[in-house]
């Protein structure tokens, strides 16, 4: 679809729209522990009853902002030592924004228990604890596609003792210090007041028939409030001890990869373990960093941005303090004000031949009506890292189709005032 010139993409934008039927990708290493990734709202997803919301971009973007607020509050509360900040801010958010996890659009299916039961989980590099709704839903459960996991039907399910080191460590991490009798409880609250509370437990996790993990720690949710999506929970991929990455360290040595499909009508994959055989020469590696304010997230050392092959005038310090993370659950990249303004201005300068139209609000403020153009040429965007590695974004990663071709927007947003 792209006739790439040196510094631009020339694209028939209609080719980037999702089709009405699913076209599974044939790529990906099928020999590895590989799970198929689908877009929650696309035709490849079996979450059929939720497809009706596929074009509700307003809700998707609002949920995305809630997630970003949640990430920032997790980090900011560590900065000022105010552990109650996220909770106090959460009360100001409208309930219709639903869950911060709702913005995480990519879903995989795993098996849990003995016999194993399939569960569709949002995979999330910004969460550490895997959780799923559990029978008997002592508090409440929201509707989900698959049957809700029933621990009493699993012969390998075990509750974690309150006095175990694992429970103590979880309680320390989550600041939730409760048990019922001798059973450890977990609680996770997100930035919009959605929450899950339940039993901290272990059971057998099945990724593929050859990738089965006994005694996998997870949250068995008995009260799950504020979630509106049809998935069964979260697959936590962040850097905490209880994430799937740490729990499978002996087999995969903390190596995982994913590919998010270019459109919602194709599929991607989530794989665990290093690639087999010769290394892929096309892979560009850059340094994985840790934020000084939070070790849970995956940090990257962004130093600059190129547009149209030209380096934007942005001080590297803009990206380094408090830092930059890579997140599978945030939809639209967020940039500090200085960086966003430089990027937006350069993009607009390259797009003067197309009619600029109003965006939905200040969130996406650079949108074009491209409905009368068979092809569109827009600038390439590259991220430059501190170690000199340059990453060129795919053509699909630059624009966001807010309203078909009538509102095609630059898919970046400016961070709120850091002091707000």
């Amino acid at each position: 679809f792209a006739l790439a010139e040196a510094d631009t993409h020339t694209v028939d934008l209609r080719s980037l729209f999702p089709a009405t039927t699913c076209s599974p990708s044939t790529k990906g290493n099928k020999r590895k522990a590989s799970l198929e990734v689908v877009h929650k709202h696309g035709p490849c997803s079996h979450l059929a009853q939720h497809k009706a919301t596929a074009t509700n971009h307003t809700q998707i973007l609002e949920q995305d902002q809630v997630r970003v607020n949640s990430i920032n509050s997790q980090i900011f509360k560590k900065l000022n030592g105010n552990e109650d900040l996220s909770q106090s801010k959460a009360t100001t958010l409208p309930a219709r924004w639903a869950t911060s996890q709702g913005a995480s659009n990519y879903v995989v299916t795993v098996g849990l228990g003995t016999p194993n039961k399939p569960l569709s989980l949002v995979f999330d590099t910004g969460s550490y604890l895997t959780w799923t709704q559990c029978q008997p839903c002592a508090g409440s459960c929201y509707p989900q596609k698959e049957p809700i996991f029933d621990p009493s039907a699993s012969t390998s399910y075990t509750n974690i003792s309150c006095n175990s080191t694992d429970c103590i460590q979880l309680r320390t991490t989550t600041k939730f210090n409760r048990c019922v009798a001798d059973t450890c409880l977990y609680a996770l609250e997100y930035g919009d007041s959605s929450y899950t509370i339940g039993l901290f437990a272990t059971d057998k996790l099945t990724l593929t028939p050859n990738d089965v993990f006994d005694g996998f720690f997870f949250g068995c949710g008995q009260k799950n409030e504020g979630f509106i999506n049809g998935t069964a929970g979260i697959l936590g991929l962040s850097r905490n001890k209880f994430s799937i990455i740490e729990q499978t360290i002996q087999k995969y040595n903390r190596f995982f990869s994913y590919c998010l499909p270019p459109t919602a009508s194709s599929t991607g994959y989530l794989s665990f373990g290093a690639p087999d055989g010769a290394s892929n020469a096309a892979v560009k590696y850059t340094r994985l960093t840790t934020l000084s304010l939070s070790s849970d997230f995956y940090g990257i050392d962004v130093a600059g941005i190129n547009v149209n092959g030209k380096k934007l005038s942005i001080p590297a310090s803009v990206f380094s303090s408090p830092g930059t993370i890579i997140d599978s659950g945030t939809v639209i990249s967020r940039l500090p004000s200085t960086a966003y303004t430089a990027l937006r201005d350069a993009f607009r300068a390259a797009m003067t031949s197309y009619p600029l139209v109003p965006g939905p609000d200040e969130f996406l403020d650079t949108c074009y009506d491209l409905s009368s153009y068979p092809t569109v040429t827009y600038p390439k965007i590259e991220f430059v890292f501190g170690d000199g590695v340059t990453l060129e974004l795919d053509a699909t990663g630059i624009v966001y189709f807010l309203n078909g071709l009538k509102q095609v927007c630059l898919a970046f947003a400016e961070n709120d005032d850091a002091n707000d």
Binding site: F255, Y258, P262, T286, I326, D327, S328, R334, G397
Partner: peptide, 30 residues
């Protein structure tokens, strides 16, 4: 904080070598 979101990660393989302290990107990965 700046966030590199999932729209910008589309259609590329993203590899997390956490033990090796590096993250990789391969274009056209899907």
């Amino acid at each position: 904080i700046a966030i590199f979101g999932n729209t910008q990660q589309k259609n590329m393989e993203v590899l997390y070598d956490v033990a090796g302290g590096r993250v990789g990107f391969a274009p056209g990965g899907c």
